[in-house]
Amino acid sequence: MKEFWDCFKNGIVGENPVLRLMIGLCSVLAVSVRLENCLFMGAAVIFVLTGSNLVISAIRNFVPNEVRIPIFIVVISTFTTIVDLVMKAYLPALSEALGVFIPLIVVNCIIMARAEAFASRKPVILTIADSLGMGVGYTLVIAAIGVVRELFGYGQFFYHQIFPSSYQGMMIMILPPGAFLLIGIYIALLNHFHRRDNL
């Protein structure tokens, strides 16, 4: 049980995929204008990550080493397509808002990296812990960016007006530069605290 917990925690704190390993950035920056988008993007990533790594871990002993990468790609793209089709059918507005970034989950480096580094070597239970941890770590970062961008960009929180309606909205937060700025500041903050802890 302790092992399970450690694997889970690793993705959130120790090796946070976005802030520490610098992977999976595209969707983090692109869809984080609205908090709602962030949560659904996070859910989609968690589903694909957990689902495909579960399968990869389950079949790891039958897969010849030479073709493991193509097989990973096939498994991951299957789960991505499922998410894409289901979202298009039942959540059309969100599917529109997230756009190409749902199909692009297939090349999200987090998933391939975890398949290669973890799922293809470890038993199913630990793989689930690792995938959930990584997915939650990803979702937390994207939500942390989304909350600031929505609040300052639109003056809203989950589409509810927080700031007085006379608030004009900081354009830069909605546009690409704001996303780059925020993630820069977040990593700097993380560096700052990390370094202080180590002293």
């Binding site: 299957t78 397509t81 499922i82 089709l85 289901v86 298009k88 059918a89 039942y90 059309p92």
Partner: peptide
């Protein structure tokens, strides 16, 4: 096969 099944359900809905 898995995708064909999912698609047949979602296609109509879309």
């Amino acid at each position: 096969f898995a995708l064909a099944v999912v698609n047949s359900v979602t296609q109509k809905e879309i």
